[in-house]
Write a protein that binds this DNA or RNA. Structure first.
Lengths: 215, 215
DNA sequence: TGTACATCAGTGAACGCGCGTTCACTGATGTAC
DNA sequence: TGTACATCAGTGAACGCGCGTTCACTGATGTAC
């Protein structure tokens, strides 16, 4: 499938893979987005990676372990998507906060099954140290974005932390409604240009924490 | 299990059940909330209802049909929970809107697995006429609540419809974050009294559509 | 550079399990007369 | 009210399936000398 970016002497099928762990995670993500989280299976992942179904046991304790790792990676990419959005946005703190929210929603739309694994599923072990760390980092990014707007550290001021909660809830709600095809009942996002959609979302996001989009 | 409210001559175990369809739906909800949506099974439902696992086929075409019906019932109860909250609230339209949102969140917290079935799952057939009607009724309730506040019909004014979207997204986001144990990272809802929690949530909800909680 | 050996990372058969669904059956119920 | 019969709504055995996991195995790789 992806010979170019394979490990050492890739291409030729070899007994030892080289980096099967990473390959399994890639395959898992593909299976997840094709089949949806509700019919994910480890055997399908092994097949997808071109390997026998017994092989994964050498890299993950069990299917839960694989999904926990995948969710952790998901959070890393989630944050990166937000940062990418921010790098294209204006530099003022309000625009940066809005861009972060738009990245949050973009990620959900582009990776609905992975997003559900991260936020709506009990399959991953959310107490796993690595996963918990990545999830917290994602949350913390939002905290920093709000801090830059308010000029007060949310951790030291419950009122500002409530702004964090508002911003989080509004983007999380929008993201969930959109990936469940619910938002269309109210607003026809699907028929808008990306720019128009972003403008509408930005307005909704900023108002949720008491700011205007025209700042 | 529940002999008192059984059909005709309940109590004595009989060959013909009387109202097995309703009983299966009750059992399905119990299994759902005990096992979570990710390990729901029709056989467990039949067992729970005290009936052989072949029996459900006389009442539902398949497991998907049962879950579709259950989701429809879920939406009815969802609306009822909101209305109940409203009947305990002040009569002004803003208080009524906030109460509706609090009911939305209460329902999610009290019925997390059912809420996920309704909003985050692809198991039910969301194109089913009955389910789609109930889901739309729930949405429409929100439309009416916002209409009463704004004095303008959202269906005739896109700007007001955006208020609907905002209100929906904020409560939906809060509900999802709370049932996934995420909200606690930001605000310690678990340690607040119910009244305090409701006050905080009301504040967040109303600000999302540009209103104050002190109205 | 060559050899012996330990370790690593695959294979594929086998396990037991629970699942949804089907089906011949039968007991219970309802109805026509 | 009694009887014959059709229909309804259960039972439980059986089906085939895909699943996660285990395990003896073996080919590939790395290392010590």
């Amino acid at each position: 499938m992806d010979f170019e970016t394979g490990p050492p002497h890739a291409k030729k099928s070899r007994y030892h893979h080289g980096d099967l762990r990473a390959e399994l995670l890639k395959a898992a993500e593909a299976i997840l987005s094709e089949n949806g989280i509700e019919s994910f299976s480890l055997r399908a992942v092994a097949k997808r990676a071109g390997v026998s179904h017994g092989a994964p046991s050498h890299h993950f304790s069990d299917v839960r372990g694989l999904l926990t790792s995948l969710a952790g990676i998901g959070f890393q990419r989630f944050v990166r998507t937000q940062i990418d959005r921010q790098s294209e946005a204006k530099a003022d703190s309000v625009s940066q906060l809005a861009a972060s929210g738009l990245g949050y929603i973009d990620f959900a739309i582009e990776n609905p099954a992975l997003f559900r694994l991260m936020f709506n599923s009990e399959q991953p072990d959310h107490l796993d140290q690595h996963l918990a760390f990545e999830a917290f980092s994602a949350f913390n990014k939002l905290v920093v974005d709000v801090k830059n707007v308010r000029k007060i550290d949310p951790y030291s001021d419950p009122v500002v932390m409530k702004d964090v909660m508002s911003a989080w809830a509004i983007v999380h709600g929008l993201a969930n409604l959109m990936i469940s095809n619910r938002a269309g009942t109210a607003m026809d996002f699907a028929r808008m240009s990306k720019a128009d959609r972003d403008a509408e979302l930005t307005d909704i996001i900023l108002r949720a924490i008491g700011l205007s989009a025209n700042t």
